[in-house]
Amino acid sequence: MAVQVRVPTILRNYTGGAKSVEGSGETLAALLSDLDAHYPGLKGRLVTGDAGDQLHRFVNIYVNDEDVRFLGGLDAKIADGDSVTVLPAVAGGSAAVAGG
């Protein structure tokens, strides 16, 4: 069972610079633990709490583009072939269109 995980720029120091890594797990928590075995320290940047059982407030994770906080958080189910995206939370809203 393989899942593609897209890693944001600021966390690529944990993945040897890789933009996308492969992992496995039936839940998001299991997937993150599997990733942490290959990329030590990565999980620690994504979760908080004494038991590491909460998503970091400024981390958003999406499974097939849906925010995992609405899919059970770290208990969200992951299936083979899913695409997982990790992004830092940034200010949007009435932002600039650059260029020009």
Partner: peptide, 20 residues
């Protein structure tokens, strides 16, 4: 990551779901 930003107005309980 700790420079991230979530608007103070945001309350996830109002939403059913959220897509990127």
């Amino acid at each position: 990551i700790d420079e991230g930003f979530v608007p103070e107005l945001y309350d996830a309980a109002v939403l059913t779901t959220r897509y990127s």
